[in-house]
């Protein structure tokens, strides 16, 4: 049971007075993850910038507003964002705007990036497509009573929860987590065990399993999502 409690991702918490999940508390946790001091140490010494990962650069932007780290991110992503814009809008002007809008959001909201929920690639790709969706709607003069970030969340806010009414249900559920875990693909089981049961950091777990960090994170994310699904599907 002790082990099982650790596997309790935010989505398993029963914060439900109403029929919809409200686990916005995740936000503060996300902020902490993205601003680990280690990231800053790595990135702010400029000799390390070249080899710093995108996640580390984002951490440096988030933690101290490191402009060199931001410029590095800009170089790495601008072309791809521009390309996405051209594909979706066929307009050089809109694509240029898209690069600016997306990178501006990266600058302003780096602190909301959540390492736990995905790679920097993933986050910035989602941002770019969301900004693009909004730019296109503006161009079409659609009413704006919903923004793309509400439709395709960036992960900084809502972690959808399970339909749990009381703690008895929760403990019944937790006692079954091991069984659910057994239903996941072996590769996903392995990363979840390393991180949630053995308490290794993502980096340690990746090197123990001999897989790239990005692979570990995506397996972890898919695995947790499946766990939530299995738990939610119940009987």
């Amino acid at each position: 049971m002790e082990l099982l409690l650790k596997i309790n991702p935010p989505g398993l918490l029963p914060a439900r007075e109403r029929i919809f999940p409200r686990s916005a508390l995740l936000g503060s946790r996300a902020a902490v993850k993205a601003t680990r001091p280690g990231n800053r140490d790595m990135a702010s010494s400029s000799s390390h910038l070249k080899s710093a990962s995108n996640e580390e650069l984002l951490g440096a932007v988030s933690h101290s507003g490191d402009t060199a780290a931001f410029a590095r991110l800009f170089e790495r992503y601008a072309t791809r964002i521009y390309q996405t814009g051209m594909k979706l809008t066929r307009s050089e002007q809109l694509s240029r705007d898209l690069v600016q809008e997306t990178m501006l959001t990266v600058w302003r909201k780096a602190s909301l990036f959540d390492l736990e929920r995905g790679s920097a690639d993933n986050w910035i790709f989602t941002l770019a497509r969301n900004r693009c969706f909004d730019l296109l709607r503006k161009a079409k003069r659609q009413p704006i009573c919903v923004s793309a970030d509400d439709i395709w969340p960036l992960g900084e806010e809502t972690e959808p929860a399970l339909d749990l009414d009381n703690t008895a249900e929760l403990s019944a559920l937790l006692s079954r987590v091991e069984e659910f875990l057994g239903k996941l693909p072996v590769a996903q089981q392995a990363v979840i065990k390393q991180v949630y049961m053995l308490d290794f950091t993502h980096e340690e777990a990746a090197s123990r399993l001999g897989i790239p960090l990005g692979t570990l994170k995506s397996r972890l994310r898919l695995g947790l999502d499946k766990l939530r699904y299995l738990a939610g599907a119940g009987e």
Binding site: A24, G27, S28, A30, A31, A34, T35, V61, S62, G65, T67, F70, A71, F74, V99, Q100, M103, L104, W107, R108, K109, A110, S111, L112, E156, E157, T158
Partner: peptide, 18 residues
């Protein structure tokens, strides 16, 4: 573009009331 963007304020790490 980088200069213009980095001259703007960043959002604080504390997420807004969500």
């Amino acid at each position: 573009m980088i200069k213009r963007i980095t001259s703007l304020p960043r959002q604080s790490a504390e997420p807004a009331e969500t």
